[in-house]
């Protein structure tokens, strides 16, 4: 288990927390010294979020918040320019019958589709500013991450050059499970560096842990902590290509990590559950978990996102029901 002490790429947060002579050993000791997780207790706590009864005005506010936090996503091999245009149109006008409907935070596409998404968004594109819809791109040989570092970094640079405001990278789960934390760490640091734009600003970096492959909650806590140390702006549960994808206990655990990070450093990191959240009812459970774990400050698209495709229409149906007092049906929301 002993790993020779080797220098890691410098990452500001890790250096501040672990000291200047950042080594694989120091990193390993730090991660393995984190408090453990009791699975039964964590799952019981997560289940308790689901028993909150969110009604009337609270529900209306929650539904709008959910929409504002959605990364409207299409990640298929069969994606076309037409499909991406259609997705963008949905983001621009989620509910044609109600112009007061808020817009989602971002559209999330494969790297080669970023240019199309930017073009389709037109003036609604945020272009790295805070006003408008972001374009998020998955990168680093998504979803498996099984490629050379050179390919992963070029994948990232291409997406950023095409206008991606956010990069959703995957970690090397194989390296993590081998105990090669240094490799995982270095790749995140390098990907962060590849997010740098010509003007010196950075695309936001979301680090996908693929918790369905890490399996244990202790692994999820270590990987979350590692991703933050290496410079991630967001930690994200899943690619959506592996089952189980996002679960409430895993998300609750990651929220505990970002809450602890804030307690330690004052800095706020975002959390993004992705995959498998398709109903308003489920999404509201996540909002409860966010508010009761990290506080209401986290109910903000800068700090919490849903990676989802079918969720939006279910939220719209619920929203229409609250407005009109009756249920419509799937033909009263648009399929894009």
């Amino acid at each position: 288990m002993t790993t020779p002490s080797q220098a890691l790429a410098p990452a500001e947060r890790a250096v501040q927390l672990l000291g200047g002579d950042l080594s694989e050993v120091a990193l390993r000791q730090h991660l393995e010294g984190l408090p453990t997780v009791d699975a039964v207790g964590l799952e019981a706590r997560a289940a308790s979020f689901g028993t909150r009864s969110i009604k009337t005005t609270s529900k209306a506010a929650a539904l709008d918040t959910v929409i504002r936090m959605i990364d409207l996503t299409t990640l298929q091999g069969s994606d076309t320019r037409g499909k991406v245009r259609s997705l963008v149109a949905k983001a621009l006008v989620p509910d044609a019958s109600d112009p007061s409907t808020p817009r989602p935070a971002a559209v999330c596409v494969y790297g080669d589709m970023v240019g199309n998404a930017v073009e389709a968004l037109g003036s609604a594109w945020s272009a790295g500013k805070d006003d408008g819809i972001n374009v998020a791109a998955v990168a680093t040989a998504f979803p498996s991450g099984r490629a050379s570092i050179g390919v992963k970094l070029q994948d990232t640079r291409d997406a950023v050059a095409a206008g991606a405001d956010e990069i959703d990278m995957v970690i090397d789960r194989g390296a993590f499970l081998e105990g090669n934390y240094g490799k995982v760490f270095d790749e995140i640091v390098q990907t962060k560096d590849a997010c740098r734009r010509d003007d010196g600003t950075y695309a936001h970096l979301k680090v996908i842990l693929e918790t369905g492959e890490l399996v244990t909650y202790d692994n999820v806590r270590r990987a979350s902590w590692l991703s933050i140390l290496a410079g991630g702006d967001f930690i994200k549960t899943s690619t959506g290509k592996v089952q189980p994808a996002a679960t409430l206990p895993v998300t609750a655990l990651m929220l505990q990590v970002v809450r602890d990070w804030e307690r330690l450093t004052g800095e706020r990191i975002g959390v993004k559950p992705a995959g498998g959240i398709s109903t308003s009812k489920d999404a509201i459970k996540y909002l409860v978990a966010v508010a009761e774990t990290c506080g209401e400050a986290w109910l903000d698209p800068h700090l919490f996102r849903f990676g989802a495709s079918s969720l939006l229409n279910d939220v719209l149906l619920q929203r229409q029901k609250l407005t009109t007092g009756r249920y419509s049906g799937p033909d009263y929301v648009t399929i894009d």
Binding site: S58, A62, A291
Partner: peptide
């Protein structure tokens, strides 16, 4: 009213 004020659900 903030989110955590949860509307009454008696």
């Amino acid at each position: 009213m903030t989110f955590l004020d949860y509307a009454p659900a008696p």
